[in-house]
Design a protein around this nucleic acid. Sequence first.
DNA 1: AATGAATGAGCCTTCATTCAT
DNA 2: AATGAATGAAGGCTCATTCAT
Lengths: 190, 190, 190, 190
Amino acid sequence: METATNKRKDILEAGLMLFAERGYDATTIPMIASKANVGAGTIYRYFVNKETLMNQLFREYVTLFLETLRTGYPNEGTCRQQFSHIFNSMVRFTLDNEHALYFIKTHNRPRVLDEESVALYQELLDFTRDYFEAGKKTGEIRKMPANALIAIVFGAFIQLHQLVREGAVDETPQLLRDYEESCWDAVRAH
Amino acid sequence: METATNKRKDILEAGLMLFAERGYDATTIPMIASKANVGAGTIYRYFVNKETLMNQLFREYVTLFLETLRTGYPNEGTCRQQFSHIFNSMVRFTLDNEHALYFIKTHNRPRVLDEESVALYQELLDFTRDYFEAGKKTGEIRKMPANALIAIVFGAFIQLHQLVREGAVDETPQLLRDYEESCWDAVRAH
Amino acid sequence: METATNKRKDILEAGLMLFAERGYDATTIPMIASKANVGAGTIYRYFVNKETLMNQLFREYVTLFLETLRTGYPNEGTCRQQFSHIFNSMVRFTLDNEHALYFIKTHNRPRVLDEESVALYQELLDFTRDYFEAGKKTGEIRKMPANALIAIVFGAFIQLHQLVREGAVDETPQLLRDYEESCWDAVRAH
Amino acid sequence: METATNKRKDILEAGLMLFAERGYDATTIPMIASKANVGAGTIYRYFVNKETLMNQLFREYVTLFLETLRTGYPNEGTCRQQFSHIFNSMVRFTLDNEHALYFIKTHNRPRVLDEESVALYQELLDFTRDYFEAGKKTGEIRKMPANALIAIVFGAFIQLHQLVREGAVDETPQLLRDYEESCWDAVRAH
DNA sequence: AATGAATGAGCCTTCATTCAT
DNA sequence: AATGAATGAAGGCTCATTCAT
């Protein structure tokens, strides 16, 4: 059937939105149920508990983002081209999944995340870290801790996305190009 | 006497640490009391309730950070010198107040923050925004939304601080210089 | 179904009994829950909070008592006949609702009662007051403040009911007749 | 010294007023301390605990009321004269001690009252009961449970006092005479 | 499979009581 | 003797989770 799948998806989407907007602890199961148009008990048919739902959600989107990053990654391209791919992945991913990147960025620390989720997140970090480390080796990327470089790029992007959602700025192609250029300047060696 | 003042300080410090590490909602009053070596009821001698404690804390540190930023700000200096002052303010402030900047960065949105706190935070944003807007006018700062520029500088710095605390990198003067340079390149016009 | 209705009723009945016996402040939610054979949280499915439960209860029984008073009230009867109806209403009402009249008598002052409840209680007072005022006009009722007359009749009745429950006296029809006669003599003009 | 005695009196008076107005459970020690212009801890210098304070208070005023009743009681007078004495005792006692009679009437049941207090209250009841029983024997008092008769007289009086305090009626000597007459008619045999 | 009523653990908060000053 | 800061037990209430329907 497709109904069951839809319920699961509804729950995940409601969870994503609420976790992103209010944080894990301030989000209640009834809230998720209500937003998903589902009985509270139904959530427990698809997820063991709130923590599991959260982890499932986290993994679902980290996986998806990883796929987005990996799909069409120009292994043989230049450092700049690879950066462009990464940046565009964020754009595309966010277009398809409104709150996902923000959710990932604000919920990537243990306490609720289980080992598997942490490991998966590591994978995401590693992918980006590898890129930066390689770039540092060739001298094209600035000599800074990779984590910090990652934070700059992700953090800036998420902040921009927020401004767009608030209506503070218009998300024109030009803005995105500027933004990419800016981030690139932020991490590239000078 | 000093005893009374100390209790209040103990509570604030415990709150700061826990709010920073676990977030507002995941931090319980008993946790704060325990970490402050204080009875749970004692907290209510100094603060109306959890929300008030949080706001008091927030304002205390935003005010302190604002003072740090304003003290010795080179109004007549170059854009670069002013940037340097801002960056060094973050360094000094974080040295004196471990978790404060991270706490501010992760708790600056309403829902628990009252109007006064939000207004105070605006003041902090405005200070930095003014700097960036002025820089954009003279063509020294990149044409990007000020909020995003702020996010880059703050976000990167906090991320670095975290790496330092985790022991992932050593906070050498050289690292800080590199970092400042990097952040500067991230926001300056090219 | 009937189950849901029963839970609500169980809670109301437990609340009535406890409020009557111990007073509002000395009655705890766990007490009510326990006496109603219900989880503490269940009470909050049916009532917003303790105060609301109290008000609901109060209104439920004041309404019921008002109905009892109004049903079959001999508008065209003599002053004495009307008095008889009022007295018998108390008897019948107390027979059906053990603690209700005592609860009403001991909880009719603000601080926990909301406006609606106070207004409803006024209605009850007004009904009886109207009776006494009319009687005073025709010279059949003693020239005393209606409130005091009401207190005499209600107060005496409740006291009697208490003696009956304690087993101190037997509630024979004869006793009730005597009692009614006594109350009548207490308020009628001489 | 006299200071100590005064503090004790201040506390008792504050307690009386608050217990009468809010009831025992809704009255807090800080409230009493504040109204008595005394530190909260001071209360524990004069009374073992809240319960003891309450009992002390209760006994103090029941004793005082008993004295008022007994002083000048016309043992050899007529039933009517004795009634008059009882009624006037209430008037005088209430004049000297605003809330005392109401406090006694609303707090005469166990749960907070200790044995000694209950016994003392019994004494008060017995005094009045004896009067009524004697009257019933001589046929001058109505054949009703003494408790109920007591309730009528006390209840009516307290209700009247309340109306006076609320300003709903003026406490003229005439009103008091009428009231006494009414109460007398309420209990006397016809 | 889906629901939502029911539960009770645990949180925030109050307040009787203690105790250092 | 007097104070009021400090405490922690206990109450009102929420919410993750279960379970009968």
